[in-house]
Design a protein around this nucleic acid. Structure first.
Length: 272
DNA sequence: ATGTCCTGTACAACAGGA
């Protein structure tokens, strides 16, 4: 089971890029962010023709999240992050697919900081931490995937000082991400590739893609029940180099099927 | 401070977000 997250940066503007990547990468589940599309403009028909069922929460111009499932309809659980009924921004959707609960999130960017936008980012993070604790308590397989708008450590950005004041790197944001992991979540890409530089975002400005001046902002966190099923993880970097590309590239993980490799047909432990 | 890309407003550039 392959699960991906991709900040598409306007799903209608980049529908061709998305369909091309879906055909090439064949993910079973996709979390999309920054649809920048109202609910009624979501390209459900084109995605269905490509073999994907979808649930989404759009918003005109900004934000917007969706979960796609190959050959299936995601079972919607919620279309908002609990904790603030007055929060109107479309940044969270959750659905079950093939026995896995998938939370798709677009955490606020938070710039400029300090200021109200950074305060909103930190408050949103607190709500996510609370909700994530509740998900862990269910003791079911969960993936929390999306654009966290956090560079977790200095390992997750090219050598640069130009981002030091940016909300993506601030200690409060990094600490919140660390607190989330400390609940028991596994950062799949970093865990499978402990020493490699991994980037998922390259700013449009200043030749950042040709220079490979990237940041790791898009993360897939898996619950303890899924950690043992994690076999592979990566970033489809070439997507960023295409014509009309989003400024993010898709990140993905592969999970073994439930129970696979743990027990043989006879019921005894299978050799590993 | 700058750079890039894109949308919405509203009809030409500019504000805003990322």
């Amino acid at each position: 089971m392959k699960i991906a997250t991709f900040n598409i940066n306007n799903i209608n503007k980049r529908l061709g890029n998305l369909l091309e990547w879906l055909a090439a990468s064949q993910p079973d589940v996709v979390c999309l962010q920054e649809l920048k599309s109202a609910d009624g403009q979501f390209p459900a028909k084109a995605l269905e023709a490509a073999g994907y069922g979808a649930v989404w929460r759009g918003e005109r111009t900004y934000n917007g999240v969706a979960i796609l499932a190959r050959g299936a309809e995601p079972v919607l659980i919620r279309r908002a992050l609990p904790g603030d009924p007055n929060d109107q921004q479309s940044r969270y959707i959750e659905a079950a697919v093939n026995g896995v609960v998938v939370g798709c999130l677009y955490l606020p960017n938070g710039n400029p900081q300090p200021g109200p936008k950074f305060a909103y980012k930190l408050a949103w993070f607190e709500r996510l931490i609370s909700h994530a604790a509740g998900l862990l308590a269910l003791d079911v397989p969960v993936v929390l995937a999306g654009d966290y708008n956090v560079v977790p450590t200095d390992q997750d950005i090219y050598a640069s000082r130009s981002w030091s004041k940016n909300a993506l790197l601030q200690p409060q944001a990094r600490q919140a991400y660390r607190r989330l992991l400390d609940q028991g979540w596994t950062d799949a890409l970093r865990t499978l590739h402990p020493d490699a530089p991994i980037y998922t975002f390259w700013d449009y400005m200043r030749e950042r893609w040709p220079r490979d001046a990237g940041l790791r902002l898009d993360h897939l966190l898996v619950s303890p029940t899924l950690k043992g099923r994690l076999v592979k993880a990566g970033v489809d970097r070439d997507v960023r180099g295409a014509e009309n590309a989003s400024d993010h590239a898709p990140a993905w993980i592969e999970l073994t099927e439930p129970g696979a490799g743990r027990r043989s047909v006879s019921g005894r432990r299978a050799p590993s």
